[in-house]
Design a protein around this nucleic acid. Structure first.
Length: 830
RNA sequence: GGGGGGAUGGCGGAAUCGGCAGACGCGCAUGCCUUAGGAGCAUGUACCGCAAGGUGUGAGGGUUCGAGUCCCUCUUCCCCCA
């Protein structure tokens, strides 16, 4: 090998956290660093942080990382600030996908779910999260769902749970109920049969009882956006309930927010499902009415309520008439799909002159229009003499003895008038409906009810809980619940008389699981109560909750309801689950589109972690932009984070062995200044979840240290302070790398048990200030002044500037402005 | 239709209370180092202009000594509700 060249220079290994991440995770585990300790000695203030638990779909998506890495950083920061932090994790393990997987692949939902959990737990560990897995909650396990059943029984006792009819999507071919999202274009997602609405007996939780209380957000630090969405969802409206009568004397109740327009009610519209429709319909109209009812059954509520201009108003006359109770007018009764049986009373009085939908309806079908409110501004009629539509409040006209009542009291006066005559009464209604918790599904919590021929729906006694979900289920390709055919499960004696009875085969909505999981984390294996009362009084409510905005209404409303219900049955002493709420944005694909398998723009975290390290991925996700905004992934950009960590490593590794001396000169003062400034700014940022700017500040700091590492200042105590500060500030964000740096610096394990650094305002203060000098708002020079320079000093220096002088030449200064520490503006004239 | 949130370089984004627009990062350019570069280091990088200087935060108007920031009108995108 005579031609052998000199040995190639060893390839410079790129710094990567992958080299030591596993080592430090093992060290944390061995030291039980993150073990939940509810009663620390000495005592510390508690901090309970929860981020929404995932559905165990199989793989941790980059979106999960985006949801979990920042709150993990925030929790770690709180820990360093001296709090006893509890930041647990679990799995929302019941739900349809497991059942679908069972039907498609033959895997049992339980094994499928538990295998997925296994994998996702491994992935979450690889993120370097501080979750204590001993506190984990898995909702599909009997020790968890037993308490769903227990709550159900308590709610029954408290009158908060009841059974009633409700309409659901029904697939006649699959013989099963479908969820809204399983209905595609009015057809069954599985067999493409046309589906329709059908009435079914279902269980409900009485959330409407808390409607008023749910509108109160006192003491909660929640995003305005979420509160607004919930207020809209609850939809409180004040008005009057008025009783109309059919010609045959049957009462038709309506609710209106505009009782002042009652005299303008020229017809009525009932929901096609309204019970009085049959009686009202005349023989001539019979076939038209039943055709229309069939047509309506095929529509979703969203379609029915749509007020798109393009959507033609449809409806059919029943042939029947009602009497308007305020003026005894005989008015026709119609049916139309825009009136819903489930909203209000299922019937409306139609006032075409002052309601848009009624106006459109009346025009389409040639029904009379009578104006009864004079608009505050403008005329009732346009120049051509045509009636103008308006829905303003105004003076009542054509309204019998109430004619002339001014707009500001029209509603209240009318309600008084109605009440005095027994026709109607003031009422508050809500759009919010009771929570239907029945699901005709297998993979969920069995509802603890046994039906007995003699005693009806009988609750399972508490001591018999849990009602176990049988695992020997046989899955039908139709998706029909296997519980309906499981004799062993179904057959059960009536708890009252012991005669053969039948179990409820419906299971609970999975939102029941997620309504109280944040409490179960405290005592996941407690078999006395859903949550240990002592731990509850110590640790609740949750201080910080984070998760996606998509749960603004359903999940967050249900868990608020549950908390209030738990309070009212004596389990909790408070009524709101989450003191602070923060919603992260959505991470998009590189093409700026939602990530989805079909688009092929999904980012796989495992692959990235293996190549670049968990800390790199964590930092990059937090660096992308404001956390609440979300945004597109950018594969190229991650190199910036790698370079940053590499530079930080260079700074720390190359100088860790330097001897240190106490020095006080300009260079060390300058270094200490930037050190204390970065502590100040980074602390402010992480407090407000501004991870992106925090990382930018750390980058600047590292860039500064990079320039200084080969200068004498790198051999001072100030340098030591700077490099240790860097490791500490990095600890919440990049836990493994910070631990490695801490180790390189020769400090004892662990960086995560250190106190968050504090800054001294005196050290952070600048000695000199750079002031911009403007003339008429345009910057003409920049000057440097002493930090304590007075306003007159600064103005004098500014005016003395030669660059400024040429802009002042021949002009008169009419005004001088000084913004302390920032700028001078000289307004000139002439 | 109603409610909410946006729009800043080639890109992601900074900018305290109305006070130097573009921090930080990507990308790009030039140079150094290198057998090599999808590595590292240095410098530069809003736009127009050789420069002096001018112009710039979706569009138009207003308030102000001064507006990305406040007010009005509009365009457009996203989300929620209907």
């Amino acid at each position: 090998m005579t031609t052998a060249a000199a040995p190639a220079k060893p390839k410079r290994e790129r710094f990567s956290p992958t080299a030591f991440e596993q080592k430090w995770r093992d060290a944390w585990d061995a030291a039980k660093l993150y073990k939940f300790d509810p009663h620390p000695d000495p005592p510390k203030p508690k901090w309970y942080a929860v981020t929404m638990y995932p559905y165990p779909s199989g793989d941790l998506h980059i979106g999960h990382w985006y949801a979990m890495a920042p709150p993990d950083a925030a929790a770690r920061y709180r820990r360093m600030r001296g709090y006893n932090v509890f930041f647990p994790m679990g799995f929302d393990a019941f739900g349809l996908p497991a059942e679908n997987a069972a039907i498609k692949r033959g895997a049992h939902p339980y094994t499928w779910t538990m295998a997925n959990i296994e994998n996702m737990r491994r992935q979450m560990r690889s993120m370097g999260t501080m979750f204590d897995w001993d506190q984990e909650v898995i909702t599909c396990q009997p020790e968890y769902y037993k308490w769903n059943q227990w709550f159900f029984l308590q709610f029954l006792k408290a009158g908060l749970a009841y059974r009633a009819e409700a309409s659901v999507w029904w697939c006649p071919s699959c013989q099963t109920v479908l969820a809204n999202e399983q209905v595609v274009d009015g057809r069954c997602e599985r067999c493409e049969t046309e589906v329709y609405r059908r009435e079914l007996e279902q269980w409900f939780f009485n959330i409407v009882r808390y409607a008023e209380e749910l509108l109160n957000y006192d003491g909660l630090d929640w995003p305005e956006r979420v509160k607004t969405m919930q207020r809209n969802w609850i939809g409180r409206s004040e008005g009057a309930r008025v009783t109309f009568k059919t010609e045959a004397g049957d009462a038709i109740e309506v609710f209106t927010t505009r009782p002042d327009t009652l005299w303008g009610a020229t017809f009525m519209v009932l929901a096609p499902e309204h019970p009085l429709v049959e009686k009202l319909t005349t023989p001539e109209q019979r076939s038209a009415v039943s055709d229309y009812q069939a047509h309506t059954r095929r529509q979703s509520e969203i379609e029915r309520l749509s007020t798109d201009i393009e959507k033609e108003k449809t409806g059919v006359f029943t042939g029947g008439y009602a009497i308007n109770p305020v003026n005894n007018e005989r008015i026709p009764v119609w049916i139309a799909d825009y009136v819903l049986m489930t909203y209000g009373t299922g019937a409306i009085m139609a006032v075409p002159a002052h309601d848009e939908r009624d106006w459109a309806f009346a025009h389409k079908f040639g029904l009379p229009i009578v104006p009864v409110i004079e608009p505050a501004s403008g005329d009732l009629y346009d120049p051509d003499g045509n009636l103008r539509f308006h829905h303003d409040y105004g003076t009542m006209i054509n309204s019998g003895e109430l004619t002339g009542t001014p707009g500001d009291v029209a509603v209240s006066k009318t309600i008084e008038w109605l009440q005095a005559r027994g026709i109607g009464t003031g009422e508050v209604t809500y759009r919010l409906r009771d929570w239907g918790v029945s699901r005709q599904r297998y993979w969920g919590t069995p509802i603890p009810i046994i039906y007995c021929d003699d005693h009806g729906a009988v609750p399972v006694p508490e001591e018999d809980l849990p009602v176990l979900l049988p695992l020997d289920a046989e899955f039908k390709p139709t998706g029909e619940s296997p519980l309906k055919y499981n004799e062993e499960f179904l057959n059960a004696p009536c708890p009252i008389c012991g005669k053969p009875g039948q179990r409820e085969s419906d299971t609970m909505d999975t939102f029941v699981d997620s309504s109280w999981y944040q409490y179960r984390y405290l005592s996941p294996h407690d078999d006395e109560l859903p949550v240990d009362p002592d731990l509850a009084s110590l640790w609740l409510p949750v201080d910080q909750y984070t998760g996606g905005i998509e749960h603004a209404t359903m999940h967050l409303m249900y868990t608020r309801f549950f908390t209030k219900a738990m309070r009212d049955i004596g389990l909790l002493s408070f009524g709101e689950p989450f003191t602070r709420l923060f919603n992260q944005g959505i991470i998009l694909g590189e093409d700026n589109e939602k990530m989805s398998k079909s688009r092929g723009n999904v980012i796989d975290p495992d692959d990235l972690v293996e190549r670049l390290g968990a800390d790199t991925v964590r930092l990059f996700l937090m660096f992308l932009g404001p956390w609440d905004q979300g945004g597109p992934w950018n594969s190229q950009g991650i190199a910036g984070i790698q370079r940053f960590l590499e530079r930080a490593n260079t700074v720390i590794s190359e100088t860790a062995g330097n001897a240190t001396a106490a020095v006080d000169d300009d260079a060390t003062r300058q270094l200490r200044r930037i050190t204390h400034q970065v502590i100040r700014d980074a602390t402010e940022d992480i407090d407000g979840f501004q991870f992106n700017t925090m990382i930018a500040e750390l980058m600047e700091f590292v860039n500064d240290l990079m320039r200084l590492k080969d200068t004498p200042v790198a051999h001072t105590a100030a340098w030591r302070e700077a490099t240790e500060t860097l490791a500490l500030l990095l600890a919440p964000l990049a836990p493994h790398t910070a631990e490695e740096f801490w180790h390189i610096l020769g400090k004892p394990f662990s960086v995560h048990q250190q106190a968050w650094p504090t800054w001294d305002p005196a050290i952070a203060a600048e000695e000199t200030l750079d002031i911009a000098v403007q003339v008429n708002g345009k910057v003409r020079d920049r000057i440097t002044v002493a930090a304590d320079a007075s306003e007159s000093d600064v103005l004098a220096i500014a005016k003395a500037s030669s660059k400024v002088a040429q802009w002042l030449d021949g002009k008169t200064i009419v005004r001088e402005m000084y913004v302390p520490g920032r700028l001078v503006n000289l307004a000139v004239k002439g």
